[in-house]
Nucleic acid binder design. Structure first.
Lengths: 226, 226
DNA sequence: ACCTGAACACCGTTCAAGT
DNA sequence: ACCTGAACACCGTTCAAGT
């Protein structure tokens, strides 16, 4: 027979979990997913963890550090396997970039923060390493690859950030977007090209646009010597 | 002889200037130039104008609106004249983009805010119109031009934003940049490509990089059908 | 070493009341 | 219509004091 339950003096409610950096980051991601990144404040994260804001500073340097950690955490989901798969390098490169984009599309607010402060966590470095490996496999000269990676990341991150801005709170608020009114408005005379191209300028973040962008950027990187 | 001075009852000190949207934006730009964009708060701008924060809301919808207005204001300085000049279209396009970049380099914090919330003021629209005109002059198909403009702007804005992050307060604080330590550090085994390329990855926002990027993006846009 | 409460020095935005 | 003071509902971060 089993012995009587150990530690019977333990309270009914499970003890509040020990504070860890990972726990803080996970709590922050939960809040961001539910209420948006702007609600991820030290005080709110601390509240969720049943402690005070000051306690977080043992594990997190400041708010920017917390945001960076959140970003790196979600970058763990990016699929880097095409780097070692078979097939044409351009397509494999596009696959990795697409995976990165899909991850950021799910967290557009973090995409915006990635634009502002370039991440530098281990998962981000893994991704960059992977992109460089693929560019090298494609015979792209080193100097072009070094700057090209930036171009690729900027494009993918920017599109994800834009997507978030559009479908998020901002647009629901009926944000006065001058581009929209110029495209289908009375400003045909002032901005003829914008009016002429119309919706093509606004056609958002669909997979087509992403795929075209990757192709274009990869082609430019490979074809432009320094 | 002249008549005696009119309105002699006027006070010695010049009356405090009437509040206008333009005055608010200019005061905000002055603060941003002196102390950084993060100091551009409603309360601080109001203080500079010798009034209360609540008074600004007659002319400015909210903080985001103020930032957007600041951005559009500085975009007035972008030189669009290459659009109607003579010469190869690619070079003229690069000239306009370079002018845009130089303007943003002077206000990197606004570059970051431009990445997050795409501007849409009249000066921004003028710029987009100009870019589209040049792409059309180059015979770039409409659909490629529509998406290509975005690519160009994203690159130029991103580089300017990055430049600001590096030379600004963040770097001075000795920000722990994992990229830097991976490049010249002990992680040669973990990130061989990053280590191998080294400083080429970090070589910042020089004119060479900008020029190369414009060339590459323009080449990609022109060469990649949709 | 870790955690806490309290404090400091701020924010954006709204609103009733004035002119 | 514009302007204001005061209030509401928050912030990040620090620090002395506790365990």
């Amino acid at each position: 027979m089993m012995t009587r339950e150990e530690r019977p003096s333990r309270r009914e409610r499970p003890a509040k979990p020990a504070l860890t950096r990972d726990g803080i980051v996970r709590a922050a991601l939960a809040i961001a997913g539910a209420d948006g990144l702007e609600k991820v404040t030290m005080r709110r994260v601390a509240e969720q963890l049943d402690t005070g804001a000051a306690s977080l500073y043992v594990y997190v340097r400041n708010t920017a550090d917390l945001h960076a950690a959140m970003l790196d955490e979600i970058l763990a989901e990016v699929d880097l396997s095409p780097a070692t798969a078979a097939g044409p390098w351009r397509q494999r490169l596009a696959e990795v970039m697409t995976s990165y984009s899909l991850v950021l599309f799910a967290s557009p607010a973090l995409a915006r923060s990635a634009l502002v402060s370039r991440p530098s966590g281990p998962n981000y470095l893994n991704l960059i390493e992977c992109l460089l490996t693929l560019l090298r496999a494609g015979g792209v000269p080193d100097d072009q690859a070094a700057w090209g990676v930036d171009l690729l990341m900027l494009f993918a991150t920017g599109i994800a950030a834009e997507h978030g801005t559009r479908s998020g709170r901002a647009d629901a608020d009926g944000e006065h977007n001058a581009m929209v009114s110029a495209v289908r408005g009375a400003d045909t005379a002032r901005y003829p090209e914008i009016a002429r191209l119309g919706d093509a300028l606004l056609s958002g973040a669909g997979p087509d646009r992403l795929a075209w962008g990757f192709q274009a950027v990869i082609a430019g990187i490979a074809a432009t010597p320094r």
